[in-house]
Amino acid sequence: MAEEIIRLVNIAKEFHGVQVLDHINLQIFRNEFVTLLGPSGCGKTTTLRIIGGFESPSSGDLLFEGERINEVPSFKRRVNTVFQNYALFPHLNVFENIAFGLRISKLNNKQIARKVTEALELVNLRGYEKRGIHSLSGGQQQRVAIARAVVNEPEVLLLDEPLAALDLKLRKEMQIELKNIQKRLGITFIFVTHDQEEALTMSDTIVVMKDGRIQQIGQPIDIYNEPKNMFVADFIGASTILPGRFIQDFHVFFADRAFDCVDKGFAPQEEVDVVIRPEDVKLVAPEDGMLQGVVTSVVFKGVHYEMLVESGDIVWKVHSTLMEPVGSNVGMVILPNDIHVMKKVAS
């Protein structure tokens, strides 16, 4: 495995008696794109601010390359931050904003000019040196904020919901661009967001958080396919999760019938959870379905319709480009490949 750069050991944080972080343990590796994902108030921003040195933990240790840096002030840490509202210096132009950190490290003017130009090229803002901050669009300010941070060649870049203020289209573009920047610089990114799609698109590793605790750490594909508990499953993809029983290899029982599946290795009669993604449930005529049900709700989502289908005491979430009206009887087909059997975990 890659080389560790940051480690949080039993980090806890209290604000006025409220436990914001509940003994977090987290290991972050060099060149990794890590996303802290969770709803607001889950402690993800506090975690980032502790790594940046803007908050100090109530207890626990923060290690940087194996050394404890709890007491190292933020201006001495080899991390830089892209703040949520960019926090650009309004009295300085684009060039001077980016040069701010370089001037502190006492580089000469020639070096500063070269590095600023490189940073502007990296974020596609060449020729904007003399512009005032207020004359830039949100997306451009965002790019300046990134350039201002990366120009200092930090080991780790912290990003606090940097795309939250951008419109959808721009956000998608910046997601790809940020990922490219990370690859090109070859440094660690720690990215905070509440947008699961953003997390799935960009990350090498996702850390799902809730109520100051880490719920699951894993690669996007694992988090999506094998959510560890109800909260993660719900937050990540709104899949249908059902209690089931493993019959034997390639056979699983749930929703009152046996299904063929591709999973093996569970014990016969073992209690399991079965995850079915809404896009994997196919609606057919009632007589052709493995399961029958009644449509109880339809919501148009742009590319697809999100429908709830009631079958017995189970409510299935179904995504389809074809709409079935509320009240209609439908059949449902689930292919073996789309059934994800996971170990039952006490959540």
Binding site: G52, G53, F54, P73, S74, F75, K76, V79, N80, T81, F83, Q84, N85, A87, L88, F89, H91, F100, G101, I104, S105, R148, A149, N152
Partner: peptide
């Protein structure tokens, strides 16, 4: 913007320098 002070520290400015070069102007 309260983050501006943090941003200055983040970029390596000591608290004193952050006040003089970012807050004061």
């Amino acid at each position: 913007d309260p983050q501006i002070y943090d941003a200055a520290l983040d970029l390596g400015a000591t608290p004193k320098r952050a006040y003089f070069s970012v807050i004061l102007p």
